[in-house]
Amino acid sequence: MMSSCKESSRGHGVPFTGPFISVLLSRLENLLENSIAVNLLVTGILAQLVSYPQPLLRSFLLSTDDHNQPNVRTLYQVLVSVRAQIERFMAARPDYSALVTQAWRFLLVKDQDSKFRECLQSQDGDLILDPSLPNGSVKNALALPPLGVLPPCPPIPPQAKSRVFAIVLYAEFLKELAAIAQEHSIAPDCPDEE
């Protein structure tokens, strides 16, 4: 009986994005408090949803217009809220810039190392050996530390670690959203897509 009352109230003009989008946006709003694994999962799902060629979903998620619907939060509003949280964190920690730079470099090297490992393990024969490098090494091997030797995690205070990595992830997520929005702006709308 209770659920039918809720359903009928939503059916009578009360806007609702649905539980899936609502949970994703709530998790995103807690970006600075979540673990890096949760943040990667949430931003990955949102990036895939934004990439999906469904015009209504794309327009809802990528819109920066202010909606006059107070009960409906948009991705843009959540990103603005996260930005305000980041600014408060930065004001409280004058050393945030150095911490974020260290975290960004660590994640970049870790990502490059994993991509390099994938390349080495591929069976496609796509590796290009360069005879001018010692032992015929792979060309981009000089840019990476020896295989399996990653720099240690930067000395970020434990209470700030998730927040610092979240700031790096936030910046990268915004770049990804911008790239996806650019792709959508130049791609023709095809309603008959698979």
Rank of each mutant, 00 (worst) to 15 (best):
M1D: 10
S3P: 01
E7A: 06
S8C: 13
S9D: 09
G11F: 09
G13R: 07
G13D: 12
P15L: 11
F16C: 10
F16R: 10
T17S: 11
I21N: 06
I21T: 14
V23M: 06
L24T: 02
R27Y: 01
E29R: 02
L31A: 07
L31Q: 08
L32S: 00
E33F: 03
E33D: 09
I36M: 00
I36R: 00
L40N: 09
L46W: 00
L49H: 07
V50A: 12
Q54N: 14
Q54A: 13
P55G: 05
P55T: 09
P55L: 12
P55Y: 04
L56N: 11
L56Y: 09
L57T: 14
L61C: 02
T64P: 02
T64H: 13
D66C: 02
Q69I: 01
P70M: 03
V72T: 04
R73E: 11
T74R: 02
L75D: 01
Y76A: 08
L79F: 06
A84Y: 08
I86E: 10
I86Q: 10
R88A: 12
F89Y: 10
A91V: 08
A92L: 08
A92I: 05
A92M: 09
P94S: 12
Y96W: 13
S97A: 12
A98F: 06
L99T: 09
L99Q: 14
T101W: 08
Q102H: 14
Q102I: 06
A103V: 10
R105V: 10
F106D: 13
F106A: 15
L108G: 04
L108H: 10
V109E: 15
V109T: 15
K115D: 01
F116D: 14
F116C: 09
R117E: 08
R117F: 05
C119Q: 06
Q123Y: 07
L129R: 15
L129P: 04
D130H: 14
P131W: 04
S132F: 10
L133F: 13
L133M: 15
P134Y: 12
G136V: 06
V138H: 15
N140W: 13
A141F: 09
A141L: 11
L142G: 14
L142I: 14
A143D: 14
P145E: 10
P146V: 07
P146I: 07
L147Y: 11
L150H: 11
L150G: 13
L150Q: 11
P151R: 11
P151Q: 11
R163W: 03
A166H: 02
A166E: 01
I167D: 02
Y170W: 00
Y170H: 04
Y170I: 01
E172S: 08
F173R: 01
K175D: 10
E176S: 03
E176G: 00
L177T: 00
A178E: 13
A178L: 08
I180R: 03
Q182E: 15
Q182R: 15
E183M: 14
H184F: 08
P188T: 13
C190N: 15
D192N: 15
E193R: 15
